[in-house]
Simulated assay, not measured.
Amino acid sequence: MSDGPLDDETLEKYREAGSVLREVLDEAAEKVEPGVTQLEVADFAESRIRELADGCAFPANISVDEEASHASPGRDDDTEFGEEMVCLDCGVHVDGYIADAAVTVDLSGNPELVEAAEEALDAALDAVGPGVQSGTVGAEIEDVIRGYGYTPVLNLSGHGVSQWDAHTGPTIPNRGTERGVELEVGDVVAIEPFATTGRGKVTEGSKEEIYSLERDRSVRDRSARNVLEQVKEEYKTLPFAARWLDDPRAEMAVKRLKQQGILHGYPVLKEDDGELVSQAEHTVVVTEDGCEILTA
């Protein structure tokens, strides 16, 4: 939770991150069309972020159809977009201060599913303010999505962001709950409704391309040591993509570091096969009279 209102310098860094992210998301979303590869869009978004800000808060997530989160193309991935539901989720940091936002591009012919997530986000933002329970915000999200005849993804949630930490408290559920936390002035939160045609529960898939530093310890293997040094220097505690690593044997090094508990992996989270998931997300700072949307 917050320590009170943000100081001017910190708030400006969040605002800068949010402004860059809005620009990049809009540009990247326009590139999502049949025949374009996922890697082309991810590379474009990440390159633009590095050009305009201090860096990516996490790899570009490109989730298709039943995928909901943590999907990102591999180094040599040549997968092209087809007639699919495409969620594009990106993060920007300025001096470690993070903005996180997502849009859904519908190539599948299911615009109402996209609209459900967007309307749920709008309702959630209207509800945010100091003293409001996180479960109350979740109830707004759930009501809108169920009103469209879809299901919110119940085991994914919005979250706080802080310096060098892309996922911290408070948690903003995508359903109404009696238990929760009270939002406070100065809280910076990413609110991200997910709407699905499925049962509303995601599980881990087999694909894994995103990692983060779990703990630092000495390693013998030279390649693993090179990877660890790059991670600590360039990404610190922020998630990174295996394809970002310079070492030609990075894939094996990452596996070793994960086995040793040094790196944490993020498997793709997905709904049941054949279902569709849409997502909408903004990062906001809670203010005295509601919230300021950083990524609008």
Rank of each mutant, 00 (worst) to 15 (best):
G149R: 09
Y150E: 04
Y150L: 01
Y150F: 15
T151R: 14
T151F: 00
T151W: 02
T151C: 01
P152I: 10
V153H: 07
V153E: 06
L154C: 00
L154N: 06
L154M: 12
L154W: 02
L154T: 09
N155K: 04
N155W: 05
L156Y: 03
L156T: 12
L156P: 04
L156F: 07
L156R: 09
S157K: 13
G158W: 07
G158L: 08
H159S: 14
H159M: 11
H159V: 03
H159I: 00
G160E: 09
G160L: 08
G160R: 11
V161Y: 01
V161A: 12
V161I: 03
S162C: 03
S162R: 14
S162T: 15
S162A: 14
S162H: 05
Q163R: 15
Q163V: 10
Q163E: 15
Q163L: 00
Q163I: 01
Q163D: 02
W164A: 00
W164Q: 12
D165T: 14
D165S: 15
D165E: 14
D165N: 15
A166D: 11
A166I: 14
A166V: 15
H167I: 13
H167G: 00
T168G: 09
T168E: 09
G169C: 00
G169R: 12
P170S: 10
P170Y: 01
P170M: 05
P170D: 06
P170K: 05
P170F: 00
P170C: 02
T171V: 09
I172P: 05
I172F: 02
P173E: 13
P173C: 07
N174C: 06
R175I: 09
R175S: 12
G176L: 07
G176V: 04
G176H: 09
G176R: 11
T177Q: 13
T177F: 03
T177W: 00
E178H: 13
E178K: 14
E178Q: 14
E178Y: 13
E178A: 13
R179K: 12
R179Q: 08
R179S: 14
G180M: 02
V181T: 13
V181S: 13
V181F: 03
E182M: 07
E182K: 09
E182F: 06
E182W: 00
E182V: 15
L183M: 15
L183Y: 11
E184I: 03
E184K: 14
E184Y: 00
V185D: 02
G186R: 07
G186Y: 06
G186V: 02
G186N: 07
G186L: 02
D187C: 02
V188F: 09
V188D: 02
V189M: 07
V189T: 04
V189H: 10
A190W: 01
A190L: 01
A190C: 15
A190E: 13
I191A: 06
I191G: 08
I191Q: 09
E192A: 15
E192M: 12
P193T: 08
P193W: 10
P193V: 10
F194L: 15
F194A: 03
F194E: 11
